[in-house]
């Protein structure tokens, strides 16, 4: 699949993961790059876009001795966006699999 298309997928995966709980950027990159064949770095621009769109927000936790960790958290509008994108995705998969039938 072309890399431009994967960007939308990464976005959906990030929303899905954050819908379950808060993660820091590195965790998201590790989990998602295991599922989708992408360069590790591609997740970070996507996270920034989600943040600028207001779907996620970040907060720091004061680590024990170490530097603070930056966590990502889904906002209210991010939850709505996830629901919408999820149903779009399910529809898309259904429609395309019909097309792909031999």
């Amino acid at each position: 699949m072309k890399s431009q298309n994967k960007r939308g997928l990464i976005e959906l995966c990030a929303l899905a993961l954050l819908n379950k709980g808060d993660y820091y950027g590195y965790d998201l990159s590790v989990i998602i790059s295991k599922k989708i064949d992408i360069a590790d770095g591609t997740i970070y621009p996507v996270l920034r876009k989600l943040k600028n769109d207001g779907f996620v927000k970040t907060y720091l936790t004061e680590g024990q001795g170490g530097p603070p960790r930056k966590y990502y958290q889904l906002t209210k509008s991010g939850k709505e966006e996830y629901k919408l994108e999820k149903s779009n995705w399910n529809m898309l998969v259904k429609n395309i699999s019909v097309l792909l039938e031999d």
Binding site: A39, D40, G41, T42, P45, R48, N52
Partner: peptide, 20 residues
């Protein structure tokens, strides 16, 4: 190597700015 091409990554941030 796994992170990808920094030149390409830098372009991925372009559309996101100046929307505040």
């Amino acid at each position: 190597k796994k992170l990808g091409d920094p030149l390409f990554l830098a372009t991925q941030y372009i559309e996101n700015t100046n929307k505040e």
